[in-house]
Amino acid sequence: MTCGINNSRVLLAHGDGGLLSREMVRDIFLKYFNNPLLGQLSDAAVFRLKGEKVATTIDAFVVDPVFFPGGDIGKLAVCGTVNDLAVSGARPVYLNASFIIEEGLLLTDLEKIAAAMAEACVEAGVAIVAGDTKVVPRGHADKIFITTSGVGIVPDGLDLGYHRPEPGDVVIVNGSMGNHGLTVLTAREALGLEGALKSDCAPLNHTIFHLLSGCPGVKLMRDLTRGGLASAAKEIAESCGMDMLIKETAVPVDREVRGAAEMLGLDPFYLANEGKFLAVVTAGEADKALELLHESIYGRDAVIIGEVRAGRGSVYLQTALGGTKFLDLLAGAPLPRIC
């Protein structure tokens, strides 16, 4: 079932970053808005403006609850946009922020959110330079929604893109999977499973550019947000026209996340992250890439989890038992309002 004429209404699953999300983008938005930049469906659009190579991106944040262990909607809005620019090779410079506020929101909560945004901006080294606010009646929103856009500068000579990966390249992630998604879900449902669970929400631009400055073998990066590692890997494989092999035992998953996910019947590979990225690196520079990542607080747990192989866009998971299974886009398990 697609989001075309056979699907008359939007479902929550259309917002989970998986199969239905992709079909909605393809069948509606690309149908009317498609152009060479948008058609790449990357984390940010990269183009030249008066000789300068720049990147721009935009994202809306509707996370529920707005406050969660490890962050809040304000920190998330800044980090999400900064990270989309960074994995596209851009040094984030300026952000814009738009707020839809529901009547009745506590002004003290609004101030906490603004303070968290300011703190995240300081850590990332960016500034919010334009914004807008709208207030809607009670029941016409849910506390607060934030949309942030950003612009960054891409260094000359840096080339990241789906055209670059080749068979033999290694796949690296900078840390454990699923922390953000599971933290938000358990906080929302008040399941009492939080314990040590904490969102990984963080600005990754300094970590990423420390990597890029010392490792020219980085070919491609992706932010592992909605749909998690599995969906991002599948999108990369399809866009590159190559296969990817991921070793299940090599992918880091915190004990608390693994235990809670098993209890809830969830797969950490499909859970959202807000401080994790995937990098495709030439095999000869893999050790250097890990060395550079381990020097950063947001990369100290970086590991190689697999490799690129010749193929047609499939992602294979080598399981702990020695078997192999396919990883595909998230489908049929909506995880709404994670970011």
Rank of each mutant, 00 (worst) to 15 (best):
I146E: 00
A202W: 05
S149V: 02
P203I: 06
I246R: 03
L193D: 05
A190F: 00
A196I: 11
F209C: 13
L266M: 08
T148G: 08
A250I: 10
A237N: 03
I236H: 05
T207K: 07
A141D: 07
E262F: 09
N205L: 10
G178R: 07
G150N: 02
G152V: 06
E256R: 12
V251I: 15
D159N: 12
T183A: 03
G157W: 14
E238D: 10
G168T: 14
F209Y: 15
P216G: 15
D243P: 12
R258I: 03
L193Y: 04
A230V: 03
K198Q: 13
G139I: 00
E194L: 01
K134E: 11
V171I: 15
K198S: 08
G259K: 14
M221W: 13
L160Y: 02
T225G: 05
M244N: 05
A232W: 00
G214S: 15
G152L: 06
P165M: 06
H163P: 07
M242W: 08
D200R: 01
A124Q: 05
I153D: 07
H206W: 13
I153P: 04
G228V: 07
E262V: 08
A130K: 15
R258T: 12
A127M: 11
G125H: 11
D159V: 14
G152D: 03
T207P: 08
S176H: 14
L185N: 08
A261F: 06
A260N: 10
M177W: 08
T249I: 15
R255N: 14
R222W: 06
L185P: 04
